[in-house]
């Protein structure tokens, strides 16, 4: 792209539409929301931009801070579980025969081909009281009971009077399960990208020098996959932090995340200024997390040169 100076026409023709798009549909609405966060409600729908910080002060109320905190815990848990599940998956794909890799990667991204809403409803069908998980458990319960009856132990009711379905839906666990399900591919793909570049002979060298499989993994594979781990963690953590559909559909009364609160301000509560303030607070926190990461990479890069 060094030649754009010599071909300014091409540059403007290809560069202007996307720039205009971003300006019109991203930057301008964002600026509007930012301005609104300093507004006050006048009546039911009218607002007046007064430059007040009242919305932000209200957002720092313990009630909302607690929801912010809970969102961070959910997003953090989601990131952790995705990493623990995603690493073996990425590793398995890297070590799979070459002709299988494309197929396996396709399987990882296959859920993207279905709408998020439909996938979440499908998850409800799996997790609910009369869902597939409980059906399966009940089947095993019945078979186990039948075996016990055959042994003449039927009357003791060792497994309880009747099958008690697990409460898997409409609680915090359901939210984390849903978030992991939705975000796992965002962890697997960057991990795969960094593990794929890993020179196999480095692992062999570690084994050859006497390291156990686990030690080779911990001292060679993980440190060299760190860029992928960081990218994956960011790609999972940030969208998970702002999730609203998953907690809305899978969560219980006490598992709402900050995005649900924001949504309510813009819709049922009709308090746009407060919703705007909450939105920007979330954004500042996200920027903070990114800044921490940038600081970390600069420090490790600095070590490399020392």
């Amino acid at each position: 792209m060094e030649s754009w100076r010599r071909n300014p026409l091409v540059f403007w023709v290809t560069g202007l539409p996307p720039t205009a798009w971003l300006l019109l549909f991203f930057l301008v609405p964002l600026a509007l929301v930012w301005v609104l966060s300093f507004a006050e409600l006048r009546g039911v729908v009218e607002m007046e931009v007064t430059g007040t910080f009242a919305n932000y002060v209200r957002a720092l109320d313990p009630l909302y801070l607690q929801i912010f905190g809970k969102s961070f815990v959910f997003a953090g848990l989601t990131t952790l579980v995705s990493l623990v599940f995603g690493f073996p998956v990425a590793l398995a794909i890297v070590f799979a025969p070459r002709r299988w890799r494309a197929v396996l990667l396709l399987l990882v991204i296959l859920p993207f081909w279905t709408n998020l809403l439909i996938r979440t409803y499908a998850l409800i069908a799996v997790l609910r009281t009369r869902g597939f998980v409980n059906f399966t458990l009940e089947w095993f319960w019945e078979k186990a009971n039948a075996v016990l009856s055959l042994l003449g132990l039927g009357s003791f009711q060792l497994l309880g009077e009747r099958f008690e379905p697990l409460e898997l839906l409409y609680n915090n666990t359901a939210v984390v399960i849903g978030l992991v399900y939705v975000h796992l591919p965002f962890m697997v793909l960057p991990l795969y990208a960094s593990l794929e570049k890993l020179d196999r002979s480095l692992i062999e060298a570690a084994l050859d020098l006497g390291a156990s499989q686990f030690r080779a993994f911990a001292t060679v594979v993980v440190p060299l996959a760190l860029p992928g781990i960081i990218s994956g963690a960011i790609l999972v953590f940030i969208p998970a932090l702002g999730s609203f559909l998953t907690p809305d559909l899978l969560g219980g009364t006490d598992s709402q995340m900050i995005a649900n609160v924001i949504e309510r301000q813009f819709k049922s509560a009709n308090d746009w200024p407060f919703g705007s303030a909450l939105s920007f607070l979330l954004m500042y926190l996200t920027f903070g997390a990114l800044a921490l990461r940038a600081l970390y990479t600069r420090r490790t890069a600095g070590q490399g040169r020392a």
Binding site: S201, L202, A205, D208, L209, S212
Partner: peptide, 16 residues
């Protein structure tokens, strides 16, 4: 491999 009394110098050197 990790218990054999041999060590290897790899073609790519495999320096960590």
């Amino acid at each position: 491999a990790n218990r054999r009394p041999v060590n290897m110098v790899f073609q790519s050197y495999a320096v960590f």
